[in-house]
Simulated assay, not measured.
Amino acid sequence: MEPSYNVGFIYAHPDDETFLSGCLIRQLADQGEKPVLLLATKGDAGKKNGHAAHFTNEALAALREREMERAAAILGLPVVEHLGHPDGKLNQVEESGFVEQVAAFINKYGLKVVFSFPEDGGNFHPDHIAISRMATAAVTSGKCPTVQKLYYSMSDTLRQQGHIPALSIDTKPQWDIKAEALKAHASQILAIERYFGDLSSCPDNRRTESFALAWERGVWWPHKQELSALDDLQ
């Protein structure tokens, strides 16, 4: 059977996909799915570490695109597309056109499931907040009829609002894969190590990739626990 493009991840920067959902992506790929990734920027304003310390924004964007290709190969992502909007300035991009770009990506692959940031961006990063808003608007606009589910990565704000994960992935069994994908984003290694440590082992406080089911076929915040993002698809 030909694998299908059922699941898409819509994030702001290269490395967001591995931080939030690297093991989930790899699991989907191992199950025969063809997960796809849309990034709003190429990460051209990211922290410049090591050999990239003196790169221009344009050179950093090119480097991070290559790093993303390596991470995608590790995670089993056959498709990565970049909108190329200015890093750090997504909240300045004209919204209607931005939503249309996201909707076009979703419709191109006929996605049934979409993952993105929660409304608070997870850490209140303006770019994360902006892409969450665009992905949510596209999914709920009626312009993406194939989408049945929208998941948000869990955040403290969601927990404070009483939301719980519908889907949780234990990263420990696949930590080596996630660590390799993180290492592929070498220009950002200092930020990565601040979050995950030296990557030699799975840190207990970063062990789980968790996602709230924000929307399912027109219903906001359905209360359910799932074993897979593919559960109950029609």
Rank of each mutant, 00 (worst) to 15 (best):
Q101I: 00
V114W: 14
A229V: 14
N107H: 03
Q160V: 01
V7M: 15
Y5S: 10
Q188T: 01
S200W: 02
P3N: 11
A72K: 01
A130S: 15
I169M: 07
E69F: 03
N123L: 09
V139G: 13
A73S: 08
T146D: 10
A135F: 08
N49P: 00
H54I: 05
G218S: 11
A71Q: 01
T157S: 03
A61C: 07
K48P: 00
E100N: 12
Q161V: 05
Y11G: 08
Y11M: 14
R217D: 08
E180G: 09
L83D: 00
D44E: 15
S21G: 11
A179K: 10
G97S: 13
S228N: 07
L63G: 00
V7H: 15
D156Y: 10
G46C: 09
L20D: 02
I25R: 05
L90R: 01
K48I: 00
A184T: 08
F55P: 03
F19P: 04
K178H: 08
Y152W: 09
A135M: 07
S168W: 14
Q234F: 13
L150E: 05
I10C: 13
S132D: 07
F55L: 08
K172V: 03
M134A: 13
Q148C: 15
R70H: 12
A179H: 06
H163E: 09
